[in-house]
Design a protein around this nucleic acid. Structure first.
Lengths: 207, 207
DNA sequence: CGTGGCATTGATGTGGCTCAACGATAGTGG
DNA sequence: CCACTATCGTTGAGCCACATCAATGCCACG
C-alpha cells in the first residue's frame, strides 16, 4: 500500500510546505485543511494559481523544479512522500498514474478556465465567478447534500488573498463585495462568511 | 503500435478540429503546423489558453467535455485517434500514460506561469515575456542549433491573436511593439517577424 | 487600380490601481 | 472584563494604464 512509504504530518496555518524554485523533493496528499499554490514575479507581486484541499494532491512528481510555493491557509494534516519513493512507486502502479493523470487533466482544464477570467473578465465578473466557485468548493459541511453548491459558506482566506487569486487589489475586492451586498445579491455576515441571496443574478454577473 | 488506430489528416489554416463544450470525441498528435486553444466568455471575448505545435498533443482523453476550441493557425497535419480507441489503448500501455502525464504536468506548470502573467503583469511585461517565450517556441529552423532560443523568428499569428494570448487589445499590442522597436530592443522586419536586438533588456522588461 | 483585411496611430474615456485615512475585529496583557 | 494594539477591512479622492472609438496607412489580392 502507498501508505507504507508516506508519513503523516501536521502543518500549522501559514506554514509553507514547498517553495517556488526549489527542487521538488516531496509530494503529499491533503488529509484535511486548505493550501494555496502561489507564484510571484521578481518584483514581488504574488498570484495564487491554485487552491488545494481535502484529498487533493500537492507537489510535482517526476523530476522538476517546483513552480509554486505551497502554503497552508488553515491548520492542516497531510500525508507526505519522498518524491523519489513516490515516483518509483507510481511507475510500478499504473492505476495510480492513471488517477494522477485524470486529476492533472482536470486541473489543467481548471487552470485554463481561470486564464479566461484573468485575461478577459472585469472585476465584477471575477468576483461573481469566484463566489460561485467557492460556493461549490467550500460548501459548509452542515448541509448533508454533499458535492453540491451551498448558499452559505466560509472562505479560508482574507481579502488580500482573494485579490491574489483574482488578480485584483484588496480595495477593489472590498468595493465589489460591498456593491454586491448593497444590491442584495449576497450578504456578508462576518469577514469570511458569504451568503448568496440571489444565485441566478450572480451567475449572470459572472460573465 | 499506436499508429494502427490513428489516421493522418490535413487541416487548413483557420479550420477548427474541436469545439468548446462538445463531447470529447477525438484526440490527436500534431505532425506539423500550429494550433491555438481558445475559450470564450458568454459575451464573446476570447482568450487563447494554449499554443500547440509540432509533436504536441491535442484533445482531452478520459471522458470529459472539451473546454476549449482547437483551431489551426497554419496549414497543419495531424494524426487523429478516436478518443475511445485511444483511451483503451492508453489503459493497456502504462508507458504511454506516463508520457502523457509528464506532458500534462508540464502544461499545467506552464498554464500556471501564464496565470501570473495575466493576473499581475503590465502590458510591457506581458509583451516582453511573450516575445521571449515565442523566441524559444518558434526559433526559425535555419539555425542548426536546435532547441535553443533564436533572436529572429516568425509568429504564426497576427496582432489580434497576440492580444488574445496576452489579455490585451490589438491596439495596446501594436503600441507596445512600436515602443520596443523605438527603444531598439527589437526590430519588426515584417508584420509577423520579430528580431530581438537586446535580449538582456527584454528579459529585464519581462518582470 | 481598386478593394478588403490587417496594422498603426491619435484622441478620449474609464475601470481599477494608488495613496491615504478611518473603522472594525480579534488577540493580549493588565 | 476592559483598555490596548495589531491586523484586517472599508471608504474616499485622484490618477494612470489600458480600453475604446475613430481615422489613416499598408499590403496582398483579384
Amino acid at each position: 500500500m502507498l501508505n507504507r512509504i508516506g508519513r503523516q504530518r501536521n502543518v500549522a496555518a501559514g506554514q509553507s510546505l514547498i517553495w517556488e524554485g526549489d527542487d521538488s523533493l516531496m509530494v503529499a496528499n491533503v488529509i484535511e485543511g486548505v493550501f494555496k499554490l502561489a507564484t510571484s514575479t521578481n518584483a514581488g507581486r504574488e498570484q495564487i494559481v491554485g487552491i488545494v484541499s481535502q484529498s487533493d494532491f500537492i507537489g510535482r512528481p517526476f523530476g522538476a523544479h517546483s513552480q509554486s510555493t505551497v502554503t497552508a491557509l488553515t491548520d492542516a494534516r497531510v500525508c507526505v512522500f519522498m518524491r523519489s519513493d513516490f515516483d518509483a512507486f507510481a511507475r510500478e502502479h499504473p492505476e495510480l498514474e492513471h488517477k494522477l493523470l485524470q486529476r492533472t487533466l482536470a486541473e489543467l482544464d481548471h487552470a485554463r478556465r481561470w486564464m479566461l477570467l484573468l485575461g478577459q473578465k472585469s472585476a465584477t465578473e471575477r468576483i461573481a465567478s469566484f463566489l460561485l466557485e467557492m460556493s461549490v468548493k467550500f460548501a459548509d459541511q452542515s448541509c448533508a447534500t454533499s458535492a453540491k453548491a451551498a448558499d452559505t459558506f466560509t472562505l479560508p482566506f482574507g481579502r488580500q488573498q482573494v485579490g491574489e487569486i483574482l488578480g485584483l487589489t484588496i480595495e477593489t475586492v472590498s468595493r465589489q463585495l460591498a456593491q454586491l451586498k448593497a444590491d442584495q445579491v449576497i450578504d456578508l455576515p462576518t469577514r469570511r462568511e458569504i451568503k448568496i441571496l440571489d444565485r441566478p443574478r450572480l451567475v449572470s454577473l459572472a460573465g
